[in-house]
């Protein structure tokens, strides 16, 4: 889901940085002191998840963990994504520094959206199956939303949004299903063992 350096146009890069700056500023304001270590822990998990390859038929991809991040961190997800992506760019050469704003915005807003849509329902849910199902949907939706935004950013650059979006959304369907299952099990387990972790 990382867009590489040198692909997006200047105006799209600026839009990405504007959204990311706003997200980080708001996220830092909403992050309470006692949640900072948790934010660092989840940011580290996101940073390392990019190294876990998932084989899907003839191709392979890596986990994003966008939905668990959003559901655990809430508004703090933007700073967490930004730092992790910055280090991925510097240490693993994923994405790039100029495109960091766009990549952070795409992943941050996807994670934040599922928190806004499903966070409260999951916290208040007292049925295991319902928690798993909603978490599964959240996990899959976060990936598909991210894929849609990647398509949108690429489409805004070369003016061929529909083609770019179609290719990327179809390519991300298997990952969305896998992330849905991972999110379903992870959030169900957290809900049972330490529900206070969910924002």
């Amino acid at each position: 889901m990382h867009i590489s350096e040198g692909i997006l146009s200047g105006s799209v890069l600026i839009a990405g940085w504007a959204g990311t700056t706003a997200g980080i500023a708001y996220g830092l304001r909403k992050t309470e002191s006692e949640k900072i270590v948790r934010t660092a822990l989840i940011s580290s998990a996101f940073f390392l998840a990019s190294l876990v390859n998932v084989r899907i038929g003839p191709s392979s991809t890596h986990l994003t963990l966008l939905a668990p991040m959003g559901l655990i961190l809430g508004y703090s997800v933007f700073p967490a994504v930004f730092v992790a992506l910055l280090l991925q760019a510097l240490l693993f050469h994923f994405g790039g520094l100029l495109v960091l704003g766009a990549n952070t915005f795409i992943m941050g807003i996807s994670a934040l959206s599922v928190y806004i849509l499903f966070g409260k329902v999951i916290r208040e849910s007292d049925k295991k199956f319902l928690t798993f199902t909603i978490s599964f949907i959240a996990g899959a939706l976060a990936v598909m939303l991210g894929a849609f935004l990647v398509g949108l950013f690429l489409g805004l650059t070369d003016g061929n949004f529909l083609t770019a979006a179609k290719i990327i959304i179809v390519a991300h369907v298997p990952l969305a299903l896998i992330e849905g299952i991972v999110t379903g099990f992870l959030i169900s387990w957290l809900k049972k063992s330490s529900p206070e972790v969910l924002s």
Partner: peptide, 14 residues
């Protein structure tokens, strides 16, 4: 080594 360095930097920033 790069992975450990990254995690270390994240916690230092935190």
């Amino acid at each position: 080594i790069r992975a450990i360095l990254g995690v270390s930097i994240i916690f230092n920033i935190a």
